[in-house]
Amino acid sequence: MTKIYAVANQKGGVGKTTTCVNLAASLVATKKRVLLVDLDPQGNATMGSGVDKSELEETIYDVLTDQAAAADCLVVSEAGKYHVLPANGDLTAAEVEMLSMPNKERRLDLVLKQVAGNYDYILIDCPPSLNMLTLNALAACHGVIIPMQCEYYALEGLSALIGTINQIHQVLNPQLKIEGILRTMYDPRNSLTNDVSAQLHEHFGDRVYRTCVPRNVRLAEAPSYGQPVLVYDRQSKGAIAYLALAGEIIRRNEQGAGSDPINSEMAH
Rank of each mutant, 00 (worst) to 15 (best):
N173H: 06
A241N: 04
C20R: 00
V34N: 00
L74G: 09
T184F: 00
P128M: 00
H83S: 14
Q10E: 05
E55Y: 07
L36N: 09
G80K: 02
L230W: 03
G43L: 02
A246H: 05
A116F: 11
E97D: 13
M47K: 13
M148T: 13
K81Q: 15
H83R: 14
V196M: 06
V34M: 01
E248S: 06
G80R: 00
T19K: 01
D233S: 07
T2F: 07
A140T: 02
C141G: 03
T17I: 08
Q227Y: 01
S77K: 01
I168V: 14
L36M: 14
Q170P: 11
Y61N: 07
V21D: 12
V63S: 10
V144F: 03
G226S: 02
V229D: 06
A139V: 06
E254Q: 15
H142Y: 07
S197I: 06
L182N: 08
L35M: 03
Y152D: 12
G13K: 01
L27A: 04
Y119E: 11
D38G: 00
T2A: 08
H268T: 14
Q67R: 15
L74R: 04
C150R: 04
L123G: 02
K81F: 12
T211E: 09
Y119T: 12
L243N: 15
G256A: 05
A29D: 15
D260M: 04
A198T: 13
T92Q: 08
E202K: 11
E202A: 12
Y152H: 11
I181E: 11
L85C: 03
E151G: 09
R252G: 14
N263D: 15
I181H: 07
V96S: 08
H201L: 13
I146C: 04
A160T: 14
L123D: 01
L91S: 04
L182S: 10
L74N: 05
K177C: 04
R234T: 14
A198C: 08
A45M: 09
H169S: 04
T19S: 05
L130R: 04
Q42C: 02
V217P: 06
A24D: 12
S100C: 10
R210A: 15
K104Q: 13
L161N: 02
P228L: 01
N166T: 14
G163H: 04
C73M: 08
E58L: 14
H142T: 08
N253H: 07
K3G: 09
C150G: 01
D233E: 13
A116C: 11
I145L: 07
A140D: 00
M185L: 14
E248A: 07
C20G: 00
T59L: 03
L192G: 02
M148I: 07
I168Q: 01
L230F: 00
I240C: 13
A79D: 12
T17W: 06
P41V: 02
V144P: 04
A239V: 04
Y121I: 09
S197R: 03
D72N: 11
